[in-house]
């Protein structure tokens, strides 16, 4: 029976990193969950992005070795509306992705998530995404990296944005482009505290987003063949291992049934009080591992330690 891989995105420790947590502290917390993978945000984690110093690179590889973690996904951005009055050209977008592919490869990553600027409230990506990615498919192939845009609330699975990504994969036949699912799309109860940079304006105008778009987990079946990596977005898990927003008791069995064997990379996005994220991530790992073990036991598979 297929088994999940467990990882943590350093996005989970937002605000702690840079105020009360060092990169090595973060490695310790990730390794302490029993994870095998670490996900970073390139321009966040690398203090001289896009060009890491030799000292930073030496430290990076030493930390990977000491904590026995493998680099999973590197998050990157294509800032299409680069100035107030000017959008990136396809050439500029392609150069941005090429730069991040090379950096991700240098650090040992297997996935690159470029976050494209959007043109509307449906999060339709700027149309340069397609030529910018297509120009990099050969490079991604050479470097052994899969480019993964994320399917992120308020964009559901059954949506023209997702359809356009799948049409691109089918047209090009590429193995170096896929979908990353952000589990925030399954949120089915409202958020009372969002850790994603909440402002008064967002709270007033983005109600559907904060209330959750409630994508049925069954829709995963339509796209799972294109999904090699999942960001396990969550906002609050209480001391009874009850998640207040994300229905893991439905997500985990569905992923198991579909044979998903990739990473679940924790993305905590809740209260940003100091150090809260460390315990929240640990609770999520305890919860998902418990649900995976229960599924395996009920289906005659191995119970994972």
């Amino acid at each position: 029976m297929s088994a999940f891989k467990y990882g943590v995105s350093l996005y989970s420790y937002t605000e702690d990193l840079g105020t009360v947590m060092s990169l090595e502290d973060a490695f310790d917390h990730v390794a302490g969950t029993g994870s095998t993978g670490i996900e970073i945000l390139g321009e966040t984690s690398i203090p001289t992005y896009p060009e890491p110093t030799t000292a930073w690179l030496d430290n990076w590889f030493a930390l990977l070795d000491r904590y026995q973690l493998e680099p999973t996904n590197m998050a990157a951005w294509v800032d299409t509306r680069i100035t107030i009055g000017r959008n990136m050209s396809a050439e500029e977008g392609a150069a941005q992705i090429a730069q991040d592919l090379r950096l991700a490869h240098r650090l040992g990553f297997k996935f690159l998530r470029p976050k494209f600027g959007v043109i509307d409230g449906e999060l339709t990506p700027d149309p340069i995404w397609q030529p910018a990615v297509e120009r990099n498919l050969d490079l991604a192939h050479q470097l052994g990296i899969v480019i993964l845009p994320e399917i992120h609330s308020p964009t559901p699975i059954k949506h023209p944005v997702t359809d356009a990504y799948i049409a691109f994969i089918e047209r090009t036949g590429t193995k170096n482009f896929g979908l990353m699912i952000d589990t925030g799309i399954f949120q089915d109860r409202p958020l009372n505290k969002w850790g994603g940079g909440e402002t008064d304006e967002i709270r007033k105008k983005a109600l559907s987003f904060l209330n959750g778009i409630k994508v049925p987990v069954e829709h995963l079946a339509d796209v799972i063949q294109y999904v090699p990596f999942i960001q396990a977005k969550f906002h609050h898990i209480d001391e009874n291992l009850h998640d207040h927003h994300i229905p893991w008791d439905r997500i985990v069995p569905m992923l198991k049934k579909l044979g998903y064997a990739g990473y679940l990379s924790s993305e905590y996005e809740g209260a940003r009080d100091p150090w809260v994220s460390i315990e929240q991530v640990r609770r999520q790992h305890a919860l998902i591992r418990k649900l995976e073990a229960e599924y395996d036991a009920a289906h005659g598979g191995n119970v994972h330690a």
Partner: peptide, 17 residues
Amino acid sequence: RFRHPYFPPEFQPVFVR
């Protein structure tokens, strides 16, 4: 006044206070 190009245009910029 942060402009996040990946935010819907109505939230460009957002005001981080």
